[in-house]
Structures are given as structure tokens and as C-alpha cells.
Amino acid sequence: MAPETETDAAPNAAADDAEASSSDAAFGDESSAAQRTAVGVKLGSTRTVLSMGRDEERRVVKTLTCLATYEDALTGDERVLYGETAAAEYPDRVQYMLRSGLPEDDERAELTERFFAELLRSESVPEDSGVVYAIPTIDNEPGLENLGAVVEDSEIGSEGVRSYPESLCGAIPAMGDGLEAINDIFVSINLGSTNLEACAYRRGEQLAPWATGAVTGVGVDRAITGYVEEETQRRVTVDQQTAREYKEQHADFVDYEPFTDIVQQPGGGSHEFTIEWAVMDAVDEFVDAAVEAVADDFLPGVAQEHVRVYRRALDRPIVLTGGMACIPGLVEEFETRLSETLDREVTCVAPDDPELAAAEGAQRIAERLLEN
């Protein structure tokens, strides 16, 4: 699990504390907070989100976490494309550098640095900013250090840079318009692309952080590719990116409708096919597996180490974040199945847009730090 460090302290406590971590020795100096930009960052395995500005001027940027390089036809210089443009124009050599959730080695760290620098330049993110970035709950110290270096060594964050757990940042928009989550006791579960993460929080303090790579959104994508092939009697094979698009565009526990698509045949011509069950079977299995992992592995650990917090947390809404929580009806399905598994009624909630929540929560923390 990610070690608890000074950068993981609750923002209200951190704001009152005169000491700061090594990466934010000047978080909020003598200049007016109104002149500085609060920036929240979530570098995700599939998408990266930036949230910046204040109130009605807040701006959100969402893009695929990938890049591609090409040679300028006139000058011969190497050019960089990122996000959806890179994936669409150079599908043969686009690189997703955070497939495991973190830049695990020097090569991936360098690619992530190039991607992040290009994104910041393209979106004109101001250097005069206080930055908070969300970090996953993964026991991978080199990867976490590389992620920190990418953000902390970038051109933004002259007013300071701090990191907070992704499951905490993502829960903040689900629990109020401010930082109410920081002063509450609750459980947060992040249904991410590369990890299923969970943590109990007591007034901003991490308790029993837990993660598994066995139940993931990427696993759903892989299952969809196999089920599409099975449902079409092996007439159709889709790649993992197409499977992810099927999931994001069509998965729906409330009002699912079969859909059609067309593929080009190797010998010429096209083939139209209809998907009846492949997508929803894969998503349904994900919910069952996630509930089982939370009920059998995560919650017993919380109960054993922090029994009173466990009892209070289950009387409060459990917050679901991450890309899989965007699927219509999934939160309610998770709630129903977890209640049945635990043989007690539990309530689950999610932010309005779970995919953007971690960056938005990080930005709110950055605003508070700048104000203080």
C-alpha cells in the first residue's frame, strides 16, 4: 500500500501546520490567493484530468493518457501528439504509458513526463499555481516516486505541490460542495481501470488502505473482446480499445439496448453484427467480483483493525469513484449486492461524474491550501 506521508495529511490540518513537505515548502506565500490558480491533477491509466480555476471560471480538461511521435515532413524534427488525436491518427504506434497505473520504470517515466509537459503547454496551465495531484493506493514505491517527479518537476506549481490519496480526492465531490469529506468517517472504493482500491477515512486519515489488480476495468475490456467473439460465433474479433468504447458507450444497468456495429472483412466487404449480451455479461461479472473482493478482503481488515470506525463507516454512505462508476445503474447494483452479501443494508453514492471527481477533489484541496 502507498505509505502514509506528510503529503497525505488532512488539508485542514496541513493548512494549520507551519511545516510543509519537501515538495511544497512555499505552498501559499505572501501573494494574494485570488491571483494564483488552484490545479487538481489526476494522471490516470486511461485518462488524465486537470481541474483548474475557481467557481464559475473553473475549467476541466480530460484526455486519453497516451502520446505518439512523428517526424515533421519539412524540418525533420520530432513532433509529439497526445490524447485522442494521437490515438486516432497513430493507432499503430500510440503509447499508453500508465497501463499499470504508474510509470514503473525510467522509460515510462520519461514518456509520462513528455505527455504531461505537452498537455500543460497545450492547455496553457499557469506556472503561478498551487497543485494537488491524486495518487493511487498501490504498493509500488518506485512508481509512486516517478509519478511524483513528473508532477513536481513540471513547470506548474510554483506555489507548491502536494499529493493526496485518489480515493479521498474522488470522494470529496460526492459528499458536499466543499471539503466536508475531510471531517467525516466513511469508506471510499475506487473502481478504476487498473486497480480496485478501497480505504476507510477518519477525518482525512487513511485507515486500512487496500488494493487489488484482480478486479479492474481493463479486465472488463478483455472479457468483452472474448464475449464478442463468442457471441458472433467467432465471425468478429475486436481489439481492447474497441471493447472499452463499447463499455463506455453502451453498458447500462438501467436501460441497456442491444447495438450493432460494422467491421471490414480481410478479403474485402463488411460485416454487420449485433451485440446482445457480451458487454453486460462482462460488466455484471465485474460487479460481482468487486463486491466479493470488498466484502471478503477489504472490510474484514477494517473491522479487525478499526472495529468502531468500521461500524460507523457502514452507517454512512460508501463512496464509489473511478471510471467504472460512470456506468448507469452500477452504483445501485453495487449497493444491492453488497447489502445482500453483508446481510445488512448499506448505502452507496457517487460523484456526479466519477471520472472527473479525483481531479475536482484535488483542486478543492489546492484552493484551501492557497487560502491558508
Rank of each mutant, 00 (worst) to 15 (best):
L98H: 03
P300Q: 11
E30A: 13
V80N: 05
R36Q: 13
Q264R: 14
V151F: 03
S167E: 15
T5P: 12
E333S: 10
D284E: 10
A10H: 09
E141G: 02
F27M: 10
E123V: 08
V39M: 03
A149T: 15
F273C: 02
P91K: 09
L119K: 07
V39A: 08
K42P: 08
V291P: 05
S154G: 01
Y90E: 11
A171R: 04
F27R: 07
G361Y: 04
S31R: 12
V61E: 05
S270R: 12
I224E: 04
G361T: 05
L179N: 10
F116V: 01
L196A: 09
I156M: 08
C326P: 01
R222K: 14
D261C: 03
R121M: 04
L43P: 02
A223K: 11
T112E: 00
K62S: 15
A290V: 02
A290K: 01
R36F: 12
A149M: 12
G361F: 09
Q233L: 00
S22H: 12
T242C: 09
G204C: 06
D77A: 14
D153F: 11
G219C: 01
T85E: 15
E84P: 01
E127W: 03
T341R: 15
I156Q: 02
D261P: 07
D297I: 01
H250I: 03
A211C: 14
V238A: 10
V254E: 15
R79M: 11
A20D: 13
M324D: 01
V283Y: 04
T69H: 10
V132R: 09
N190K: 02
D177P: 05
S163M: 14
L168N: 04
V150N: 03
D106K: 12
E333P: 07
T232F: 03
V309Y: 09
T232S: 10
E127T: 09
T48G: 02
M324I: 05
D77Y: 05
M1D: 14
V291Y: 01
V41T: 05
A86R: 01
F334G: 06
N12K: 14
T46D: 15
V60Q: 02
V349K: 01
P91G: 00
V346F: 06
T260P: 10
D55I: 08
I275C: 06
E166G: 05
E345C: 09
G219L: 02
G192I: 01
A86Q: 02
A33Y: 11
D17W: 11
G213T: 13
N140S: 15
V307A: 15
V319L: 08
R344V: 11
E229P: 02
T63F: 00
L320P: 06
D221L: 01
C66P: 03
V39R: 06
P3W: 08
R234S: 13
R316I: 08
D221E: 12
A149E: 13
A357D: 00
P173W: 06
T112Y: 04
R93S: 13
R79P: 00
E340W: 02
L191V: 00
P209G: 07
A38H: 00
G301A: 08
A13C: 13
E231W: 00
A174L: 00
L74K: 13
Q95V: 15
G323A: 04
E19L: 10
I262L: 14
Q241C: 07
G148D: 10
A18R: 14
D105L: 00
